[in-house]
């Protein structure tokens, strides 16, 4: 019997996103705004948890991102997350990522399109919100 890891849950802050990573269910949600004081410190535990869980074989992972604004330090952290996801997908893990954006939000749409180009193995989709 395998032990189910405890989900990583971070409530939304004034300037940091809500994060929920449930490795047992195979879901990762990040939503809101992101310009924390120290982006490396904020995203560090998420990167660690992902790295740990994606190292071994496991269920498919469904990632949903619903960001409305992020600063350049957070962009760097997102890129680190994407690199972990893409390399896990390259090793055979089934990973689907949805980049949700408000249909009127040009900046978030453009970021989604740019990030999409970096994926070859994971299924990255840019999805306008209803």
């Amino acid at each position: 019997m395998t032990r189910q890891p405890t989900p990583l849950a971070i409530a939304a802050g004034e300037r940091s996103p809500r994060v929920l990573f449930d490795a047992g269910k195979g879901t990762l949600h990040i939503s809101g705004e992101s310009y924390p004081e120290d982006a490396a410190a904020f995203f560090g535990p998420i990167l660690c948890a992902l790295q740990e869980q994606l190292n071994e074989a496991g269920p498919p992972l469904q990632v949903d991102l619903e960001l409305v604004y992020f600063n350049s330090s957070s962009a760097k952290a997102l890129m680190n997350i994407f690199q972990i996801l893409e390399s896990a997908a390259a090793r055979g893990r089934q990973i689907a990522i949805n980049w949700h954006y408000h249909p009127d939000d040009d900046t978030m749409e453009e970021f989604g399109q740019d990030f999409a180009e970096d994926f070859k193995h994971a299924d990255f989709r840019v999805v306008p919100r209803e």
């Binding site: 600063n71 350049s72 330090s73 962009a75 760097k76 890129m79 900046t107 453009e110 740019d114 180009e117 970096d118």
Partner: peptide, 30 residues
């Protein structure tokens, strides 16, 4: 600017930079 932002995003930060090179590109893009 969009292309140079994408390139910088994938590179490790430059010496003495906490990510400023990316921040300035973001500023110029907007």
């Amino acid at each position: 600017l969009r292309a140079v932002y994408r390139k910088k995003l994938k590179e490790p930060p430059e010496e003495g930079s906490l990510g400023a090179s990316l921040g300035l590109i973001e500023v110029a893009r907007r």
